[in-house]
Simulated scan of single mutants.
Amino acid sequence: MSTITNTRKDAFLRIAMKLDAVVTGANGIAYLLGAALVGPLLGLPAGLLVPVGVFLVGYAVAVWFIGTRPEINVKAAWGVVLVNLVWVVDSLVVAFSDFFPLTGWGVLWIVAQAVVVDAFAVLQVIGLRKITR
């Protein structure tokens, strides 16, 4: 089985996963509760922000679950890294394409999100490398 027992070796990964879950969940809740206000500010349709918020909240719960098990499933943790990297690429495509009439704030926000999510992925890779060496 591809798991690692809860030891000091996995503490870094656990923190990275929990931080990702908290920030992602907060972002998802903000989209759900404030879609009508945030959408126009960013140049995104509120109808898009609601399903994105639902996804982010669900994803946050999954990341929290993976990061808090007595044994971290390495394959699941690598899955989190992969989803984070896909989010980064997709965010940059949205930010620098004409899919939506983004405002300047919208481009800034989407790029900032991509940078933060990329940082989570890097921290998670570092944590995974610590426990799989």
Rank of each mutant, 00 (worst) to 15 (best):
A119D: 02
V23Y: 06
V22Q: 02
G34V: 01
T5D: 12
V122I: 15
V81Q: 06
I66G: 04
V22N: 08
L49Y: 12
V115D: 02
D98P: 03
L48R: 00
G47V: 02
G106R: 07
V83H: 05
V125C: 13
V94C: 00
K75G: 11
S2C: 02
G28R: 01
Y31S: 04
A26D: 04
V23T: 10
K75D: 08
G25E: 13
T5N: 10
I4E: 13
V111G: 09
A11Q: 08
G28Y: 04
D20N: 15
V86M: 05
A95S: 06
A121R: 10
L56T: 01
G67K: 10
A112E: 00
R133W: 06
P51M: 07
T3Q: 12
G39W: 12
M1H: 10
S91K: 09
V117G: 11
L33E: 05
P51R: 01
A21Q: 10
Y59S: 14
Y31H: 13
A16N: 03
F100P: 00
A11S: 11
G67W: 08
F65G: 02
A60Q: 10
F55T: 08
V86A: 13
I29P: 03
V115S: 00
V111M: 08
L123H: 12
P51F: 03
L85R: 09
D118K: 13
R129Q: 14
L19K: 00
T24P: 08
V52T: 03
A16M: 06
V74N: 01
I131T: 09
K18V: 14
L42R: 13
I110Y: 09
G58M: 10
V22I: 14
A60V: 09
L19E: 01
T24L: 12
L123R: 05
A30D: 08
V81G: 08
K9S: 03
T7A: 12
R8T: 13
I126W: 11
L19D: 00
L49R: 04
T3D: 12
R129F: 12
N6C: 05
I110A: 07
L42W: 08
F99S: 08
R8W: 07
T132L: 15
L85D: 01
Y59G: 07
L123T: 04
V80N: 10
L37Y: 08
T24Q: 00
V81C: 01
G28F: 05
L19M: 07
V83Q: 02
L85P: 00
T7H: 08
L128Y: 13
K75H: 15
F65C: 01
Y59V: 07
A114Y: 11
R8D: 11
L33G: 03
A35C: 05
V115A: 14
D20S: 15
W64C: 06
G127C: 12
P101M: 11
V117P: 06
I66Y: 06
A36T: 08
L108N: 02
V125K: 07
V23G: 07
S97K: 05
V74F: 07
R133A: 14
